[in-house]
């Protein structure tokens, strides 16, 4: 009997049409139609949640009030990716969590327009605490990728 082991190659290809839901739809339409970033305020703890959610996970209550937050903010965490992962963008790219002015929680997006080819040089500019601005795509589709962050005056 041959001891040769055989293999079965398979591929998953599954499509979804995800509903953004009421809350995220308002958020994305504000980005698409008015270049505005909207958070939701918790009536109990008063935090402005970004990205917006219909409830506050700390207070267990529904959030009701929409709040327009600033288009500038502060980097709270970041990474610079140098590895190619299958199905993910071509490196290098930077991702940052930014606390936008007026928001209580940080929102993640790409940090663009900064040279990442030399890590040490990039780290001179990309720091926790660095100020950034929101930059909107010209053609917006109502997605998180309709905007990104760029460093302010460096």
């Amino acid at each position: 009997m041959s001891k040769e082991l055989l293999f079965i190659s398979q591929h998953w290809n599954i499509e979804f049409n995800h509903a953004a839901g009421e809350t995220a739809s308002v958020f994305f339409r504000a980005i698409k139609e008015r270049k505005e970033i909207l958070g939701r305020r918790c009536p109990a703890c008063k935090r402005v949640l970004l990205p917006p959610r219909s409830f506050c996970e700390r207070c267990f209550v529904d959030t009701l009030e929409w709040v327009k937050v600033g288009k500038e903010g502060t980097i709270e965490a970041f990474t610079i990716v140098y590895e190619q992962f299958r199905g993910l963008p071509k490196p290098p790219y930077a991702i940052a969590y930014v606390l936008l002015d007026g928001a209580s929680t940080a929102m993640v997006n790409f940090l663009k327009k900064v040279d990442l080819n030399n890590l040490q040089e990039a780290l001179e500019r990309i720091k926790i605490g660095a100020r950034v601005k929101v930059v909107f795509k010209r053609k917006r589709r109502g997605r998180i990728t309709d905007f990104w962050y760029e460093l302010l005056h460096t």
Partner: peptide, 17 residues
Amino acid sequence: PVYEREVAINAINMCSF
């Protein structure tokens, strides 16, 4: 799929933060 997936987060960079 709504807010975060398209920003290319994975198990490595989530720990980088």
